[in-house]
Design a protein around this nucleic acid. Structure first.
Ligand SMILES: [Mn+2]
Ligand SMILES: [Mn+2]
Ligand SMILES: [Mn+2]
Ligand SMILES: [Mn+2]
Lengths: 217, 217
DNA sequence: TATAATATTTAGGTTTGCCTAAATGTATTT
DNA sequence: AAATACATTTAGGCAAACCTAAATATTATA
């Protein structure tokens, strides 16, 4: 299996396993990678033989240590390139994902490490996601959902849980970018929408769906 | 044919056609791309059907206008990334080729153009090779081989015709990098080796083979 | 617990890009 | 102009990564 395809499978499994500790299911992997379930079955069987995942028929798959390291290193590359695209080339945070999705498969360790150094060894990508170090270690950063806050708390926006361009563009429009101060002023009982004030300015309402995708510290 | 493979074929054909105006031969393409001649026959047949090369059985192939543009755009990407690797990441000129060989296949026009801009729209890559503009136009730069100079001429070194790491490292050792002043002091009749002085310093001999791979203006 | 719904795998295909070995065409020598 | 050398193509195969349709497991529900 080419490094390109393998890295995408392992990354998808990593992501799904973060969501559901049991592991990643065939159908979900297929959805993530835009392929059919039958294709996934074939692929994960091979990845199992290769020793990068634990595969047992009809069970959710999990990554082996070897597989996990490959996944995390791919994530490291992805996020470093995203920083490059935003910080150096001036792209916006809603434009970078497809490019990083390709750049992440360029495998020259020296290139990755020099890139990291050139970027000042950033700890977070433009979406607020943590960048693991070159040994695959994530720094401990616990953020919470905006929807989990108590009334009248003020926090700093540090991340998002949805990376679709339309969501990102909407946040831009609202002035909700990483680093802003957000105060939770009201929780509407009817639909769980929330009234927030950004950097002390006049408040506005956010649907529960939107608030639920915003991370704070 | 994937853009990755296609771009490599077209680039190889472009390069070979520069050397031999008749076009590129099956065997030479195979050698360039490290595949077998039978594979090349298959591939060029398909590239012919696709309209990017002119293919006729048993004849050397040439690029169509469409194919030529793809080749040149790939060369543009390759050379821009090489500039990035040297200027921004601090790689040496003998280390960058394999990385650029992969990066050149990342196809996002906006990325390429922003990269070019970020690098200051360079006209030459770290090996002195010209970088075509985004429409595929090369600036006119005629350089000559060091071996074609008359005695006691002083020139500036502007390029090389051999890109192997060992050649590049040897030039480094000799202090022969792009931009230095070279004076041709002697042409040895016996073996056509040449005595050169770099930036006015004490001269040294270069074999004809080495001198023949050095370009000047 | 049987039945229905859903998930996963198997079977059988396709395309791409590569291979070796054999056949055929072209070019060079005697 | 034959014979030989060399280049190119054809034929037949293979592995990777995808597909659809059908079979089989698992899970949920009546
Ligand atoms: Mn990817
Ligand atoms: Mn990101
Ligand atoms: Mn390449
Ligand atoms: Mn170069």
């Amino acid at each position: 299996m080419s490094s390109y395809v393998e890295e995408n499978y392992l990354k998808a499994i990593y992501k799904l396993t973060e969501r559901n500790k049991d592991g990643a299911y065939t159908n979900d992997i297929a959805y993530e990678l835009n392929v059919k379930p039958a294709t996934v079955t074939e692929s994960i069987k091979k990845l199992g033989e290769k020793g990068v995942i634990h595969y047992e028929k009809y069970k959710a798959v999990t990554l082996t240590e070897a597989g996990k390291l490959i996944a995390i290193k791919t994530i490291r590359k992805h996020r470093l390139w995203e920083v490059f695209l935003v910080e150096k080339l001036g792209f916006k945070w809603d434009e970078i994902h497809p490019m990083a999705e390709e750049l992440e498969h360029i495998n020259f360790e020296e290139l990755t490490e020099r890139l990291a150094n050139f970027l000042g060894n950033p700890e977070f990508d433009p979406h607020g996601d943590p960048i693991p170090d070159k040994d695959g270690v994530f720094s401990n950063n616990k953020s919470v959902k905006l929807t989990s806050l108590a009334l009248n708390t003020t926090v700093v926006m540090t991340g998002i849980e949805n990376h679709t361009p339309s969501f990102l563009q909407h946040l831009d429009k609202l002035g909700l970018k990483l680093g802003v101060q957000v105060t939770l002023k009201e929780i509407v009982d009817f639909d769980k929408s929330v009234l927030v004030s950004v950097n002390g300015k006049k408040g506005f309402y956010l649907s529960h769906d939107i608030a639920n995708n915003i991370l704070c510290k």
